[in-house]
Amino acid sequence: MAKETGRKMIAQNKKARHDYHIEDTFEAGLVLTGTEVKSLRQGRASLVDGFGEIDRGEAWLLQVHIPQYDNGTWTNHETRRRRKLLLNRHEIEKIEHRTQAKGLTIIPLSLYFKDGRAKVELALARGKKEYDKRHSLAERQASRDAEREVGRRLKGI
């Protein structure tokens, strides 16, 4: 069988960029069981409630929903189990220090296959207040309106 190359997106947490100020991102591998990988290859996962934590020098991903594999038997996995993240020791220490000192949280942004291996993009983020969300929404709308107007002027409308 030919080796997989490239990046195949499985799931994205689109609401995370709306609810959080993203400060830094990391790419981490995942420790998965066989039925979890098969379920991910079918493109089934949800990152909505997911978050990360550092526990005794190890990084963990919690509350990420990977549904059970349809053709799995007694070997099927729990849908929301703790999954170990594969990061370098330096990255784990950096993340742990920043989450404790600055009050940041670890959230998953996307889940994908990169060269045949399951990866998750993590973000160190700070929660937005309600007025911040409205402000960023208004900024995005204003930039869209400006781009639309520039396009109209270029077309001569």
Rank of each mutant, 00 (worst) to 15 (best):
D55G: 00
H90P: 00
E121R: 13
N88F: 13
N13I: 09
K84W: 06
K3V: 12
L30E: 10
H90C: 01
N71A: 14
K84F: 07
H90Y: 11
T25V: 12
V31S: 13
E23C: 10
R7H: 09
N76M: 05
K119L: 00
S110P: 04
A16E: 09
T99P: 05
R89T: 09
A2E: 12
D49T: 06
Q42Y: 10
K102P: 00
N13W: 08
A142F: 12
K155P: 00
V31E: 15
R81I: 06
G72T: 06
R153H: 07
K128Q: 07
Y112N: 03
S39P: 02
K128P: 03
V31P: 02
G57C: 05
V37P: 12
E149V: 04
K128F: 04
T79F: 00
I106W: 06
T79C: 01
Y112W: 05
I54G: 02
D145V: 07
E149H: 08
H65P: 00
N88S: 13
Y69P: 00
T75Y: 14
R80D: 08
H21T: 09
R56D: 14
S39N: 03
I92E: 01
A11T: 00
L32T: 08
H135R: 11
G57K: 08
L111K: 04
Y69T: 01
E91A: 09
L40G: 01
D24R: 15
K119I: 02
R44H: 14
K133Q: 12
K3G: 06
G34T: 11
G72P: 03
H65L: 10
L40R: 00
T35I: 01
H21R: 10
A138N: 09
L40K: 02
D115Y: 07
Q141R: 15
E139I: 13
T99Q: 09
Y20M: 04
R17W: 10
D70L: 09
K133H: 04
E121D: 07
G6V: 01
S110E: 15
Y131K: 10
E4T: 11
N71W: 14
S39L: 03
W74G: 10
F113A: 04
H21I: 05
T105M: 08
L85Y: 03
Q68E: 15
N76Q: 10
F26W: 15
K129W: 11
R80W: 03
R41V: 04
R89A: 10
A138M: 12
K94Q: 13
I95T: 05
W60N: 04
L62H: 11
D132R: 03
A138V: 12
V120Q: 06
A45Q: 06
D132H: 14
A123F: 06
L85H: 05
R117G: 01
W74K: 12
E147K: 13
R148V: 07
E58G: 02
K129I: 08
R98K: 08
Y112V: 03
H65S: 08
K119F: 03
L137A: 14
I10C: 07
A16D: 09
R80E: 11
L122G: 00
L87P: 02
A101Q: 15
E27N: 10
L111Y: 05
H77G: 02
R98V: 01
V48F: 15
A28W: 05
R82P: 15
Q100F: 09
T73E: 12
K15W: 12
K84R: 15
L62E: 14
A2P: 09
H77M: 06
D70T: 08
A16C: 11
